[in-house]
Simulated scan of single mutants.
Amino acid sequence: MMVLKTRAELAVMHKANALVQETLRMLADHVRPGVSTAELDRLAEDFILAKGAKPAFKGYHGYPATLCTSVNDVIVHGIPSERCILKEGDIISLDCGVVVDGFYGDGAVTLPVGKISPEAQRLLQVTRECLELAVKEARPGRRLGDVSAAIQRHAEEAGFSVVREFVGHGIGRSLHEDPQVCNYGVPGTGPELRPGLVLAIEPMVNEGSPHVRVDADGWTARTEDGKLSAHFEYSVAVTENGPWVLGVEG
């Protein structure tokens, strides 16, 4: 069942997502060759706790860290590690969630480590564009399939593929609520979007094939062919005035 939020609840979710975005901006200043993903995780946890909030991911279904740090061919759910040291030319997806006053915020960005290849840069650009196009569809009267189709169409027109095993989601008092937000779909299908619905829209776009394999840790999801993957995410409220990217604008 989709849970619609009041304006007061959206205001709290805006605060939560503003902290997510602030955390991601802080981390971007520390993403450089020689830094471990475990160090990024410590920075994020300390920052979130200092703001009086709670990391959303740590302990969620047993997940051991504050961030998901997904490097190169890792699509999502990469576990921070002292052994994972960033090097020039890598890309890293930082996925961050927080809880503020009982409501969740969730967002992700993929960043270059130093100078990256033109091919990697194009993947990042196209994936971010997929998110921006999907956000534009998050308005009353549109259907969920319109959001999903916008992602798939732009990614595939650029020669990339979209991940099907992992999806976006509704968000509110729970980290994952209905509906699932696929990165592929048919325009004009699915439930109608109504004011008060909040969607965590998160395109996951692969350089090569869409196929996925999961490591023995049960979390780390990689591209099956070892090629790069990028991931961007916003939590977006559907309002009478159009999409509201929580924590970013409005």
Rank of each mutant, 00 (worst) to 15 (best):
M1T: 15
K5Y: 15
T6M: 13
R7A: 14
R7N: 12
E9G: 11
M13K: 13
A16T: 11
A18K: 15
A18R: 15
E22I: 00
L24C: 04
R25T: 10
D29M: 13
H30R: 15
V31H: 02
G34Q: 11
S36W: 11
L40R: 04
D41P: 08
L43F: 10
A44R: 02
D46W: 05
D46I: 02
L49Y: 10
L49G: 10
G52N: 12
A53K: 04
A53N: 13
P55M: 08
K58W: 08
Y60I: 10
G62S: 10
P64T: 07
L67I: 04
C68W: 02
C68I: 02
C68K: 07
T69P: 05
D73H: 07
V74L: 04
V76S: 05
V76H: 00
I79C: 05
P80G: 06
S81Q: 07
K87D: 11
E88W: 08
D90R: 05
I91V: 15
I92F: 03
I92S: 03
S93I: 00
S93H: 05
L94N: 02
L94V: 05
L94F: 04
V99T: 11
G102S: 07
F103C: 06
Y104G: 03
G107D: 06
G107V: 03
A108E: 03
A108N: 06
V113A: 08
V113G: 04
K115A: 13
I116Y: 06
S117T: 15
P118G: 12
P118M: 12
A120Y: 06
R122N: 14
L124Q: 03
V126T: 12
R128L: 14
R128C: 00
C130P: 06
L131V: 02
L133F: 01
A134R: 09
A134D: 05
G141E: 12
G141Y: 10
R143N: 14
R143L: 11
G145F: 07
S148N: 03
A149C: 09
A150V: 03
I151E: 01
Q152K: 12
R153S: 01
E157I: 00
A158V: 10
A158E: 13
S161P: 08
V162Q: 05
V163Q: 03
E165W: 03
F166C: 08
G168D: 09
G168L: 09
H169A: 09
G170M: 10
G172E: 08
S174W: 14
L175C: 11
H176D: 06
Q180G: 11
N183E: 04
G185H: 03
G185S: 06
G188A: 12
G188I: 13
P191E: 12
E192F: 00
G196Q: 11
E202D: 14
V205F: 02
S209C: 01
H211K: 14
H211L: 09
V212H: 02
V212F: 00
R213A: 03
V214I: 15
D215W: 12
A216E: 15
D217L: 10
D217P: 15
D217M: 13
W219D: 02
W219I: 10
A221P: 01
T223M: 00
T223S: 15
G226Q: 05
K227L: 13
L228W: 01
H231M: 00
Y234E: 07
S235Y: 07
V238I: 14
E240S: 14
P243M: 02
V248E: 15
G250T: 07
